[in-house]
Design a protein around this nucleic acid. Structure first.
Lengths: 125, 125
DNA sequence: AGCTGGTTAATGCAATTGCATCAAATGCAC
DNA sequence: GTGCATTTGATGCAATTGCATTAACCAGCT
């Protein structure tokens, strides 16, 4: 049977869609239940930990992530409210904001990463 | 370099996430701009067309799709408001609702599918 | 210096979503 | 039949998101 390229694309898209839906739903719930943070917040912490410098500008984070600028702004606001990051001024460019992960944020991320890996192992295996 | 299974899982998840984000964002915008419907609405129409009988119960649709029951209920409400589907009583079980695609809905779906395939060809290639 | 255009982050707003709840209807046990 | 748990779809509510706008700032030009 010869599948047309279009059919293949639609099939692949459905696969991505169902995979994403199942995993993101499970991940969102697990992170929220166990650590009180959402997927977006965890992803942001993840990027901050990945960058060895521990501080990144908002727009760097935004381009690394899949979030819109406004959504990232609010996600960082929630992280700051919970004491997981600090927002600091950037001396080079006073429009920019440095986002710095706190010790609490580091701990939270380490714990949440365990949850993430467990969920991925179960739903992405 | 030997990647641990966990690292592989996280990598795969990031791939899924970035693929989903890019495609769903483009798809959402394209469908909205060209046809005035969202991705969820298109998916619902798609399931209705796939089922040759043209009418399905809400809960059948919900299990086929990635949406929660309440989100589907509202998506169908939007489709009905736009005249793309009708909701009808089910004689067998008066709790259930039959969702029937209209001729307008069929036309809209056929047009939107072209847009979908174009977007997939561009962003999932 | 002054002005214009572009960049950065925050915010008002509308829309969608999921959770919890609700009402109606079904079915099963008695 | 009566009663109780389950199922089905709708709705109130809070939370997140993206778009458009805003304010502050920067860079380049005259």
């Amino acid at each position: 049977m010869a599948a047309t390229p279009e059919t293949n694309l639609v099939e692949r898209w459905r696969d991505v869609l169902s995979c994403y839906s199942a995993v993101s739903c499970a991940l969102e719930r697990a992170l929220q239940d166990a650590h009180g943070i959402g997927m977006s917040e965890f992803e942001a912490l993840d990027r901050l930990v990945d960058a060895q410098c521990d501080k990144r500008r908002m727009n760097e984070l935004a381009t690394d992530m899949y979030l819109s600028q406004s959504a990232l702004s609010r996600a960082v606001a929630r992280l700051e409210r919970d004491g997981l990051v600090n927002r600091g001024m950037c001396p080079d460019d006073r429009r920019s904001i440095f986002v710095c992960i706190t010790d609490t944020g580091r701990t939270k991320h380490a714990q949440a990463r365990e949850t993430q890996r467990a969920v991925l192992a179960e739903h992405l295996a």
